[in-house]
Design a protein around this nucleic acid. Sequence first.
DNA 1: GTATAGTACGACCGGTCGTGCTATTCTTTG
DNA 2: CAAAGAATAGCACGACCGGTCGTACTATAC
Lengths: 212, 212
Amino acid sequence: MTKAALPTRSRIIETGTNLLSTSGLSGITLGTLAERTGMSKSGLFAHFGSKEEVQLSLLEHTAQIAAEHVVAPAMRAAEGLPRLKALFRNWLGWTARAGLAGGCPIAAGIFELDDTEGPVREQLLQMEKSWRALLAQHVAQAVDLGHLRRDLDIEQFVWELCGIYLSHHAFLRFVRDPRADKRARIAFDALLGRALPKDAKKKKKAALRRIR
Amino acid sequence: MTKAALPTRSRIIETGTNLLSTSGLSGITLGTLAERTGMSKSGLFAHFGSKEEVQLSLLEHTAQIAAEHVVAPAMRAAEGLPRLKALFRNWLGWTARAGLAGGCPIAAGIFELDDTEGPVREQLLQMEKSWRALLAQHVAQAVDLGHLRRDLDIEQFVWELCGIYLSHHAFLRFVRDPRADKRARIAFDALLGRALPKDAKKKKKAALRRIR
DNA sequence: GTATAGTACGACCGGTCGTGCTATTCTTTG
DNA sequence: CAAAGAATAGCACGACCGGTCGTACTATAC
């Protein structure tokens, strides 16, 4: 059976995901992947039918460890706004916490595959969409619980959230600016400020006035 | 002299920039570039000393046509806020207007080269920084002219502007969502709303009240 | 005890990569 | 018209690409 094959295959995929995060999808070659896994190219190839299959498996595994390190721990936070905040906090720089050496393969793929066609693009697109849907779902929950204003444009909120993530990624990993975290936090707070119910704003203002 | 060489060289670079925008830096190969330019690989190679030189020249040309299509036309707008708005408007989707078939090579490169080292990364980093500096300069001018609030965190403003651009790029080119422009405009207006002087806000509110 | 299926290997396929070196063609100039 | 020089092509190289082949070893099934 494939019982004995699984450890090897997952070892390949683990090594490969690391390579993916540092070198991007185009940086994945059977040769380098085999070398880093410590096996022959053909031996590695036998576990997948094609290079495309390798790429798809790597993306799938990426989604899985992202869910593990971003979504799962956020579920311990209370529903609504606290969970949304935790989700966003875990999102920023999740790859390092997941043990990946490089950046976010999904973000990189978005800019790498925007003019290509094929199954790899399709899979990445689906991953991106379901991630955005998950974000939207938790925003909606925060609205339902009265944590965010009832007339909030949820799609717009998520859209801007993605912008903060991308800018954070660019500044953290490319520019290597240590202030990336701070910038993202400020932007997130401002975005949240627009999304809070009106009475919550008044409360905050009142609290601020009391401090002064 | 190189007088006769320049047309050929710039023809190569023009073709190459198009290839760059669709395939990214790693998609640039001497073979395909030579094929598309209609000349031999070695003949093309003679114009540059190395592939790296090709990449650097392509990035340089990218910066040049970006300045042509984004910055230059914005300079016709009045100084301060109007110019900043024009700058942002021209920034979004500038590659199409510049005749490029693909996305923004700079944005793509930021996510492609974040874990590499070398001159290409250095050049891209410098391009990114000077672009951000140019944005900051025009924001500062808007502050000086009283169009934006005096205590505005300019770096933060530019940082969030970059986020909007990246999210717009991702949604326009990867997700291929036609609402990308609308989302970016809303986000920009909201960012601007936080940056306006307090009296300007009151004026806007009063105007709004008058309409109702 | 033997047949079978899974796993891995090394050798090798046609092609493309970047990059040299040499010849040829074209343009300019004397 | 000839000499000079620049521009391009031709060709070969070693490395690597994705992928296939035949072949061993191993563990289970019959």
